[in-house]
Simulated assay, not measured.
Amino acid sequence: MTSVSLLGPGDEPIVLGVTTPAAPVRVPTTRRYLMCPPEYFTVEYAINPWMDPTRPIDTGLAVEQWNALKETYERLGHRVELIEPVPGLPDMVFSANSGTVVDGRVLGSRFRAEQRGPEADHFRRWFLANGYKSVVMPERTNEAEGDFTWTGKYLLAGTGFRTDPLAHSEAQEVLGVPVISLQLVDPRYYHLDVALFVLTDDLIAYYPEAFSPGTREVLRRLFPDAVIATAEDAACLGLNAVSDGRNVILPVEATALADQLTRRGFDPVFVDISELRKSGGGPKCCTMELRN
């Protein structure tokens, strides 16, 4: 904010006007996503603090919410590819955890929880069946875009709860991109994609308290203009969001975050993920980006 002033009688300043810098013009880019219908979604085990097998689950509602998310992407001009769900794999809906794709190269996943282990091979076979030539399955535990976030310049790589820190160097070798390690410290935010998301190549939003002190300093240095989320926004998985450079798909409860995004020139697009959140997932968890 700037003002123009002159000196009046007695050298008292006279303010002539106040201007507020206009928000940047944000330009969306068309994306391609891989999603998995939640036909078999339920919560029958607990592998994160959000999951409680004793709580009732409405699979039909989860399907409705997922369909609304898919239709939102398509309405915004994005292309959605589908992988068939598999009985007995209730978390397969969270496709982001099963592959990281950069410039057509695919690094598959290796899950820490044995319940999700079989998902990785179903996605591997989907990639091969759909023309991907460079598909590498990891030796180290990595939960793909759950902990790997591509900015367009760097691969931000989370660790602390799921992904093995040695998987970061493996990702650099397979994908051929610079990797920056980030330490997660709050078990509620066990994956990077529930604590941080990319808005544009040089701008992120994140919740500082989810990270170690050293990681916070790294993020401040790399992204000094970052959007800082509130505790309330983080607690509703508001940072499990998806941006196309202008439109930001995020949970309906993340209102303070949406206000900040609007002031930065973005268009918040709300979706209801209340049923899927019972398993610790949101819009991003349901969405693997295919960067070809």
Rank of each mutant, 00 (worst) to 15 (best):
V25G: 03
L222K: 06
E275A: 04
E209Y: 11
D225Q: 11
T59N: 06
P251V: 07
L250W: 12
A23N: 10
D58N: 14
I57K: 00
P37M: 01
S134P: 09
G117T: 13
V25T: 14
M137C: 14
G60I: 02
L192G: 03
V227Y: 01
Q183Y: 13
D11N: 15
T54F: 11
G131M: 08
P21M: 10
G238H: 02
E139W: 05
N292M: 15
P85M: 05
A241C: 13
E119W: 08
G152L: 04
T149N: 09
D244W: 01
C286D: 03
A96I: 06
A129G: 14
T72S: 03
T255P: 10
Y189M: 06
E209L: 06
V86P: 00
N240L: 02
Q65W: 02
R162I: 11
G88C: 04
G160Y: 02
I180V: 11
T159C: 06
T59V: 14
G158T: 06
V43H: 01
L7P: 08
L69W: 03
D11A: 14
P37Q: 08
G60S: 15
D103Y: 06
G108R: 03
F197I: 11
G8N: 13
G238K: 02
N292L: 15
V15L: 10
L156S: 03
Y33E: 11
V174M: 04
G265P: 09
V177S: 01
H191S: 02
F266T: 05
V185G: 08
A229W: 00
L219F: 07
E71P: 12
P49D: 11
R110D: 08
V185T: 14
E289A: 12
R112A: 13
N247W: 14
P13T: 05
T30K: 12
C285Q: 08
R55G: 02
F148A: 05
D201G: 13
P90Y: 01
Y206K: 05
V177Q: 01
P90K: 02
R26P: 03
G117M: 10
M92R: 00
K284D: 11
Y45H: 06
A241T: 07
W150S: 09
A171K: 06
T262M: 14
N292R: 15
Y206T: 07
F197A: 00
